[in-house]
Simulated assay, not measured.
Amino acid sequence: MPELPEVETTRRGISPHLIGQTIQATVIREPQLRWPIPADLPERLDRRTVRTVERRGKYLLIGTNRGTLIVHLGMSGSLRILSPDSPPRKHDHLDIVLANGTCLRFHDPRRFGCVVWTENDPQVHPLLAGLGPEPLSTSFDAAYLYRKARGRSTPVKSFIMDSHVVVGVGNIYANEALFRAGIAPRRQAGRIALPRYEKLVLSIRAVLSEAIEQGGTTLRDFVNENGNPGYFQQTLQIYGRSGLPCYRCGQSIRTERLGQRSTYWCPSCQR
């Protein structure tokens, strides 16, 4: 699944091609995604000018002078800048054709993504209104995380993956951040002291920042806006290394299912 770094990489890639451009045509090939693409989307989008391309959690917000297109890549979606003459492949569900002779094409084999239109403030849209702070923003700090954790018996890994607590900390990045912070993934969130949350916040920020700079993690169907895979997977310290020696202490890395997700940890380095 494309996570925050992959979505941010996509945003940075497509933004220069979209901002300031007028939408010439909207072509819907397959409307049945997670929710149906609105049938009147061409009427709402065509002849509008793209003003902004932003990200909120794992959602891309393409803002125009009339409203905002909210896009989620789902499990396997991607956005690419192509010539509108490029033959569509299977699962190329939507084209947004620009006046400069290029188009933004939405590809989603599993059709778990979504394309939603709103003419109101997108931040109050039901998909976004309940989201927690951005992990790279100043509003996300140790004091906030410590306060949110009070009285919580949920495992800390599940806690930081809760989008109502903080957005964009997916499974791979949660494993990596907890390893760097030296915190066992099953430890109860409410039983972690403030100094340890300070380490965890720094680790989350570092892991996500590094992944963004390296283009995200190559996982399943993810490619960036040019069709190239991300490369952060080459630097993973613990995810996917079950039974292999820990890079720090040499002890075998363990794995189990936690919250229906593969969880990796070092029993020596993480407490």
Rank of each mutant, 00 (worst) to 15 (best):
D162I: 10
L79H: 08
L178F: 02
A189N: 10
E225M: 07
S15T: 12
R191V: 01
A211P: 08
I23W: 04
V50I: 15
P5F: 01
A25K: 15
N120T: 13
A142P: 06
G190E: 10
F179Q: 05
I19P: 12
N171L: 00
Y146M: 00
H91I: 05
G190T: 10
L45F: 04
F140R: 02
L60I: 11
F140H: 09
V169A: 08
G63E: 14
N175W: 00
G168D: 09
Y239E: 00
G13C: 03
A184F: 07
R147A: 14
G13Q: 10
M75T: 05
P267Y: 00
T263I: 00
F106Y: 15
L219E: 00
T118S: 04
I183K: 06
Y231A: 14
C266L: 01
V223D: 05
G20Y: 09
V71N: 07
K148D: 03
R180V: 08
L4E: 08
I204E: 07
G57S: 15
P38F: 01
I96P: 13
G113C: 02
D141M: 01
V97Y: 03
I70H: 01
Q214Y: 05
S86K: 15
D92C: 04
T22R: 13
V27R: 12
G130N: 15
T138A: 14
L4A: 04
R147P: 02
S139Q: 11
T218R: 14
L98N: 13
R56A: 10
G243C: 08
F222M: 06
N224C: 00
I172R: 00
F179K: 04
L79M: 02
I238G: 01
P87F: 04
R44D: 07
T217H: 00
D85Y: 04
C103K: 15
G74K: 04
L145V: 10
R89T: 12
R196A: 09
S83A: 13
R34N: 07
A143N: 07
R44T: 12
E8N: 09
L200H: 05
T102R: 14
E8V: 10
N171H: 01
Q123M: 13
Q32C: 02
S76N: 04
Q21V: 01
Q233V: 13
G67E: 06
L41G: 08
L45C: 11
E256N: 03
T102Y: 13
R257E: 11
V156G: 09
R147Q: 14
G130C: 03
V7N: 10
R34T: 05
Y264E: 08
R11K: 14
C114W: 02
S83F: 02
F222V: 02
G230L: 03
S137K: 11
R261E: 01
E119Y: 03
L178Q: 04
R80E: 14
R89E: 13
L208T: 03
R147K: 11
L202W: 01
R147T: 13
Y59F: 15
V116F: 01
I160S: 09
I28K: 12
V165N: 10
L45V: 12
V166N: 09
G132C: 06
L194R: 12
V115R: 03
R220V: 06
A184W: 03
T26Q: 10
I183C: 10
Q188E: 15
T102D: 15
V124F: 02
